[in-house]
């Protein structure tokens, strides 16, 4: 089990003077899970981006602690995985090439024995093994979402962010997503931005972003 926790203090974010959320306090530790809810356009994805370190907060602080020591921001990405609709993987590469590239990058570019098995096993987990040598541009939107799911957990992250994880998934895809989320919850922090009732049931806590306006 990981010993990672996220601690936010008086977190606020605004764009061009318009407040998205303010004074948000949050503490979440390993084996805890949280859904971020709120109507469309109220700032769920913005909060996920801020927590994941993709954009800076306007005020307040975020710490990611490991064994009670704050991690340097450069180390955050090594601890996190993200599934979200606002990024893509490389269309011109195959599913295997994409995961292999990102797995090696996340391992600091080192060629490790067992890379190929790890990537193949992950492709199998998201039911894309048969299509692993096809370019991603030929994938359906559901297949692309499953590939992004594999990308999110490729480094066995301590913190997994899922923003609208059901997007484009059919019921089999949702089963895979649920299985991966529940598996992650056993050892790390799970944060899901969603309004879906079934997603909410995956998590122990809930935060309505509209309460921080």
């Amino acid at each position: 089990m990981s010993n990672v926790e996220i601690v936010c203090n008086k977190l606020s974010k605004s764009f061009s003077g318009k407040s998205i959320f303010k004074n948000l306090d949050l503490k979440i530790s390993a084996k805890e899970s949280l859904t971020v809810t709120g109507r469309n356009g109220t700032g769920k994805s913005t909060l996920v981006k801020v927590l994941a370190g993709l954009i800076l907060q306007s005020k307040g602080s975020i710490l990611i602690n490991e064994n009670n020591l704050a991690l340097q921001k450069e180390k955050w990405f090594a601890k996190t995985g993200l599934l979200s609709p606002y990024f893509n993987l490389y269309d011109e590469l195959t599913g295997f090439e994409n995961l292999d590239f990102f797995y090696k990058l996340k391992s600091n570019g080192k060629e490790k024995s067992g890379n190929e098995e790890k990537v193949n096993s992950l492709l199998n987990e998201v039911n894309l093994f048969d299509k692993k040598n096809e370019q991603v541009k030929n994938y359906s939107s559901g297949m692309k979402q499953r590939l992004k799911l594999a990308f999110a957990v490729i480094n066995k992250p301590d913190i997994l962010f899922m923003d609208e994880p059901r997007s484009n998934l059919d019921k089999y895809g949702i089963e895979i997503m649920n299985r991966i989320a529940l598996d992650h919850k056993e050892r790390g922090i799970l944060i899901i931005a969603t309004n879906d009732e079934e997603d909410k049931q995956l998590c122990d806590k809930s935060l309505n972003i509209e309460d921080y306006k």
């Binding site: 994941a52 993709l54 450069e74 990405f77 996190t80 993200l82 979200s84 606002y86 990024f87 893509n88 993987l89 490389y90 269309d91 990102f102 990058l105 996340k106 990308f151």
Partner: peptide
């Protein structure tokens, strides 16, 4: 433009 920069940012220094 192809929205791949976030995946790269998350994976590399």
């Amino acid at each position: 433009e192809r929205e791949t920069s976030i995946a790269l940012k998350l994976s590399s220094d």
